[in-house]
Write a protein that binds this DNA or RNA. Structure first.
Lengths: 149, 149
DNA sequence: ACTATATTGTTCGTGACACCAACTACTTCT
DNA sequence: AGAAGTAGTTGGTGTCACGAACAATATAGT
């Protein structure tokens, strides 16, 4: 039946990947909601954990249009989570930075996300988790070539 | 209850699961957008492939509020993808059904989703895919107990 | 230097999506 | 029949994302 190797109709796997992604996303949404945040917001905070990007760079990291990044930062700023600093070199550029409150929330939510996602993986024994991590790593690693320009 | 074991700090795996979920979601969004649809819409169509649920049942399947289901069906109906039939037994209930156009789109998009998601898994060799499917299956299987009320 | 072009962000308008609270219209229970 | 419950809808609010158009600054090209 599997005449085409690359398209090997592996319904179980395709279905599983899709369902798993919904599961993970809903757990993320829960963790975010527990702190009156949303998934895009925690993504934003996650990126700002080790960066101070401009709007455009931010947009690229999130895979969004720059105007979407503006909006995301607007709302986060309104909640006191981030701040718009001005770049010294470029008069029109902006530097998005977390506030102390933002950093604190990043930590809290981060821990919560780890706990909750780890709980999902808790269905597997340590060896299974190890293996899963490797397989996922290989998938994401292959993709890194594509997405990193 | 090994409450500690579930917290095994496995940063690689947690991170991988999260990133993978975003990858899958974005591929789903692409596949949907290729047919002027959205992820919630293809989810809706997917459910209607083998069911004719009422609004409430639909909402439960999607993990949404019933009013959200109403909106989703409203928009899908406006595009001629689904239809509101009336239940014969219950005068207030509704039966959401796909139209011929909706069924056709379901097929087309379904194929596209399979192709694109399979491409993600294509980074693995057949044995790896097999293994991954099993691991994911175990995770989802464990969850099924929780979510199926 | 000085205009032409490119880049960074913002704004505006539109639309999808999701929630909650309130409401209508049936059903079922007593 | 009357009370209570259930199925769906409506209206209001907020987030999110996009594209097009715009201001302001930066970088070329000559």
């Amino acid at each position: 039946m599997d005449s085409m190797a690359s398209q090997t109709p592996q319904p179980d796997l395709v279905d599983g990947l899709v369902q798993l992604s919904f599961l993970v996303q809903s757990v993320l949404a829960e963790a975010a909601a527990a702190h009156t945040l949303t998934v895009p917001q925690i993504r934003l905070l996650g990126i700002l954990r080790d960066r101070e990007p401009g709007m455009l760079e931010l947009a690229r990291h999130l895979g969004l249009d720059k105007s979407s990044a503006t909006g995301l930062v607007d709302r986060a700023e309104r909640r006191g989570l981030v701040r718009r600093g001005s770049s010294d070199l470029d008069g029109r550029a902006v530097k998005v930075v977390t506030t102390p409150l933002g950093r604190e929330l990043t930590e809290t939510v981060g821990t919560e996300v780890i706990t909750r996602i780890a709980a999902i993986a808790g269905a597997l024994d340590p060896a299974g988790r190890e293996h899963l991590a490797r397989l996922i790593g290989r998938i994401l690693g292959t993709r890194a070539d594509v997405s990193n320009g």
